[in-house]
Write a protein that binds this DNA or RNA. Sequence first.
RNA 1: GACUCCGUAGUUCAAUGGAUAGAACGAAAGCCUUCUAAGCUUUAGAUCUAGGUUCGAUUCCUAGCGGGGUCACCA
Length: 586
Amino acid sequence: MVREPHHDKKKSFRLITMDINLKIKNEIASLLKKHGLKIKPQDLREPPQAEMGDISLPCFILSKEMKKSPEKIAEDLAKVIKPSGFIINIKNIGSYLNFLLDYAKVTEMILTEIKKERSDYGLNKTGSGQKVMIEYSQPNTHKEFHIGHVRNICLGSALVNLYQASGYKVIAANYLGDIGAHVAKVLWYMLNYVNEADIGPDKGEFLGQAYSRAIVELNSDPEKQVQVQEILQRLEAGKDRDLMFLWKQTRDWSLDAFNEIYDELGIKFNVDFFESIEEKEGRKLLPMLLKQDFIKESQGAIIADLEEYKLGVLVLLRGDGTSLYGLKDIPLAIKKFKKYKIDKSLYIVDNRQSQYLKQIFKILELLGFKKDMLHVPYEFVELKSGIISSRTGNVVTYEEVRDAAMTKVVNETKIRHVDWSEEKINEVSKKIVLAALKFGMIKQASDKIITFDIEEALKIDGFTGPYLLYTNARLNSILKKAETEGIKLTGKTDYKALESNIEKQLIKDLLAYPQIVLEAQIKNDPAILAQFIHRVCQNFNTFYHELPVMKAESEIRLARIILIKATKQVLENSLAVLGMPILKEM
RNA sequence: GACUCCGUAGUUCAAUGGAUAGAACGAAAGCCUUCUAAGCUUUAGAUCUAGGUUCGAUUCCUAGCGGGGUCACCA
């Protein structure tokens, strides 16, 4: 059964966040239209320096059409266009026509908007009416859950949130590798080398070790591989009751361990798919598949021959009749669309499987199943000691990283808050660790290999998750102080009071947020949002050091408090999208 | 070999084809009787090479060099 994601009907019908930034750009576009110029809002950009203006039109794009130099165009336009609405002044600098905004007006609009929209600020409706399934995580049972899996989860869950923020109905799907060669190897090892007493309390850890030990044993003796092959055959046949019992038992160990990790990471899936089930579905498809010209027998195996599409061949069934991953992915892809009525299917999968997924998509296309399926690739996580490999045991597990980070953060927190209870220190530290881990995985574009360095991951200053939480704690601290001092947050606000460059920069940041969310979703790249929100925090911290809030004159103080509230809202909204926790103090 | 991803400060990363290539860590120097110093300010420091397209190239194209990955029975 699919558990539908929480969806408030009332909300989906109301107008979500008005993008003021876009509104301003549209206004400029229509201002230019009066002078016969066709400008799209996206042609307008932000000047590199605040003194130059707030929004800029590069006149190079008009040069050819108008048969004038861009400098001349900017100069002439600056003379004839009259400021109006949000625009208070227009000037030309070189080949750029720069617009200055009426900040009091813009500030009032944006701060009022954020106050009204709260956690809805930044949402858009570009995906409304569309249903997308995002498959991510996809761990193999009977193996350890390592730090590389964490990258996938952070990316996948952030994409789920981003698509929801764009109005899509999202089904978050997990696909668990609970059958296959790796499972057979572990079961074989357990049957031959393990006594009940050898199994420790941490079942997940035990299975991980069993897997790498099995590999060692198998490498030493090719004859043992025949035994594994035979186990896989029995497993797929499903008739050996003792074997099936052991499989189910160990499978549950893994699934329990995974669920614990998902809970810790705050991850929820709407639906779980299993390879063991898709394997059966794949076999049902076999008669149909074998009728296809491109699916044939070769060297005893059943393959899909995709040579003519320059995609090589994909083995579906081994020579011994056991099945491979491709046979399972085909029925699953179809099921996603037919059963769940989705419009779009996303696969958050390691870049190394990009050729494989092209093969799967091509096979489906050749079967007449042409749908909107997209592989969202990301580069893997490697260790200083080389590529992560369960086979060679070169693995850093999620738990190892979490524990090391926890020790460090707890120590740090104890030093800072001697008066806090053990319980509070643990609670806060857990969130800091989670923030560090998640932000660390998301902050860099997914096409970059992350060389995982535990020291790097434990860092809590700079471009890190804890920096964001710390900033939020500071924001909270001011608001808390305002509250205890009984500062009234009502009455007329003088938005003109927010006149310094850094305050204007913060206003610009708040304005940009909805566009950033949309861009991150369209590009399937949460790093865009991560980088943005870090910049906002930097700007706030600069503001924090430059300008007092509580000690400012009462009118200025009120305006600044409202700015702070809005900044906090945008920060918290961003953290929520990135799947990160929020802390009031740290 | 074919295909593919990546080459930017000492290191890890940014930059829809646009104005002076930005951050973080590390290095050097400052800032806590003042809203949390897990912070802020300042200094030094970079586009692999050669062509091409363009008014303009870190970005696009071609070739080369360097590194990673994939390419029939792991997922």
